[in-house]
């Protein structure tokens, strides 16, 4: 089956259930937003899709490759941007992207073309031979995004990929994602910036305490919340039961 499939996936860390019986499908060509408060299980879900964290129960399938039983094959199909860009900071982007490209078995010619075009687009070409320890968070994020796109993945797992990026780069990444979905790439995307999710995602899943609270298109979510015409922020706050923010601010006596 094409796309990203999770079936009845559960993951616990000790007595804490991080993800409970989660079933999720991201179709090819779809940007699927994964939203939820801190600690709701979004990052754990993404790590399980990547084969980084092993679920206790359930099945995960990426474009026909079983993540649990054929992890290396599954990883070849997917690009990942973690919530923080954990790069090898003692390497230069050139060395790091060489490492990534070699791991994905991308031939030298394709690698040169891909790196050149992506770094040019993200305005990182002039930093190609600088050691990354001196980079800002945004610069590191650009390298992480480049690394995730290098091998033309069929699926993208992006954990808050726009963190730290300048507005121009945000726009470019958004455009790249739109183009890739046009080519059939399935994108699982998490963000806390609800305006971005509203503008970009075809479908949205709202998670809380490891389970799905609501799922569907923006229209479907508004209906579920009983708030037609509302913004995603209002819908999100209603569905997650955290709409009483005014009272909290008032109680602060600032």
């Amino acid at each position: 089956m094409d796309g990203i499939n999770l079936e009845s996936v559960t993951k616990s860390f000790g007595s804490k259930v991080a993800v409970r019986d989660l079933t999720l499908y991201v179709a090819p060509g779809e940007i699927h937003g994964l939203l939820g408060p801190n600690g709701s299980g979004k990052s754990t879900t993404m790590k399980m899709v990547m084969g980084i964290v092993k679920p206790d129960r359930g099945q995960i399938n990426l474009f026909g490759a079983d993540v649990l039983h054929r992890p290396v094959e599954a990883k070849r199909l997917v690009g990942y941007v973690p919530e923080l860009p954990y790069l090898y900071e003692y390497l230069t982007p050139s060395e790091y992207l060489d490492f990534i490209g070699t791991a994905y078995h991308i031939d030298v010619k394709t690698r040169r073309e891909r790196v050149d075009e992506l770094l040019e687009a993200l305005q990182m070409r002039e930093h190609i031979n600088e050691v990354m320890s001196g980079f800002s968070q945004g610069m590191k994020q650009k390298i992480a995004i480049t690394a995730s796109l290098l091998h033309r993945p069929k699926a993208l797992i992006l954990d808050e990929p726009l963190n730290g990026l300048d507005p121009r780069s945000v726009r470019i990444v958004k455009d790249i994602l739109q183009r890739l979905t046009g080519e059939g790439v399935a994108v699982l995307f998490s963000t806390h910036v609800l305006e971005i999710a509203e503008a970009m995602c075809h479908k949205i899943t709202i998670m809380s305490e490891g389970t799905i609270l609501a799922e569907g298109t923006m229209q479907e979510l508004r209906s579920k919340a009983g708030m037609p015409g509302s913004t995603l922020e209002d819908t999100f706050l209603k569905l997650t039961g955290s709409e009483d923010t005014e009272k909290i601010v008032e109680a602060l006596k600032l």
Binding site: T92, S94, L97, D98, F99, G101, T102, A103, H105, D107, V108, R111, R112, V115, D116, L119, R125, E126, H127, I128, N129, E130, V131, S133, G134, S136
Partner: peptide
């Protein structure tokens, strides 16, 4: 903010090598 350049070039030159018992991934 320390920016250390190991080369003044801004051209990306991909490298892929193998050595002894190391294939390209292991060498990398």
């Amino acid at each position: 903010a320390v920016t250390i350049s190991v080369s003044t070039s801004t051209v990306y030159t991909p490298k892929e090598r193998s050595f002894l018992w190391l294939d390209s991934v292991s060498f990398s």
